[in-house]
């Protein structure tokens, strides 16, 4: 039996019995290989959960995600909000007595979620990441004003942060023109080749 936290959308999930052995046992190996982290080292002391500054915005605690992976519950892991809410600040890693690299695990899980077309629990986070990468592809550097504008278009949320944006413009914190790499040819080729899944 596994207790679950209230989801970020407010829905309570019922407690249900998890039959060990029904899970996808190859999944934990896949995550371990990608992250370079031995997930079986985690004995659920919850130090990561205690230190995590964003646990309130997660559906599962960080160690809960590892537990799900240990049980082979691939869909629950890949569809969790936690993997997108984690910002990779490593606060959990310095608290972990077993030196589990939680940020690497979360990176691996996000990447698997994208590649396997899992339902993304926090699509705004992914939209934001994609806008940042688009900016790097275009200029070689991040152009914050454009990232914010495009993110607003994408999420159709025009009014949140309008005041913040104006204050930042007034204080010259948002440049109208991007700071850019002069020769972006090699970067553009890299983005193209990576998208095609090829090695250089």
């Amino acid at each position: 039996m596994m207790h679950r936290k209230k989801r970020s959308d407010g829905k309570n999930q019922s407690l249900e019995t998890i039959v060990a052995g029904n899970g996808d046992m190859g999944f934990v190996r896949e995550v371990a290989k990608r992250s370079g982290t031995d997930l079986s080292a985690c004995f659920h002391c919850r130090c990561c959960a205690g230190g995590c500054p964003f646990i309130e915005a997660m559906d599962y605690a960080p160690h809960g995600v590892i537990r799900l992976a240990q049980l082979g519950m691939r869909d629950e892991v890949l569809q969790s909000a936690t993997i997108w809410t984690c910002v990779g600040c490593h606060t959990c890693s310095i608290a972990c007595p077993m030196a589990v690299d939680m940020a690497a695990v979360m990176d691996a899980l996000r990447q698997i979620a994208i590649e396997s077309d899992a339902a993304i629990a926090e699509p705004d986070v992914l939209d934001f990441h994609r806008e940042v990468l688009r900016s790097i592809e275009r200029y070689g550097r991040t152009h914050k004003l454009e990232i914010m504008m495009r993110y607003k278009v994408k999420t159709r949320d025009w009014f949140t942060d309008m005041d913040v944006g104006l204050r930042m413009l007034a204080k010259r914190k948002l440049d109208l023109m991007p700071s850019r790499v002069r020769n972006t040819k090699d970067l553009k080729r890299m983005f193209r080749e990576n998208a095609e899944g090829g090695t250089p």
């Binding site: 990779g88 994208i114 990468l133 550097r141 970067l187």
Partner: peptide
């Protein structure tokens, strides 16, 4: 000369190879 973005929090979140390439450049 001509340094590029390190990938911020975004590159390593969604694409490990891209994140590495940005840093090695």
């Amino acid at each position: 000369q001509d340094w590029n973005c390190c990938g911020s929090s975004s590159a390593h979140s969604v694409d490990a190879e891209l994140a590495e390439d940005l840093a090695t450049r």
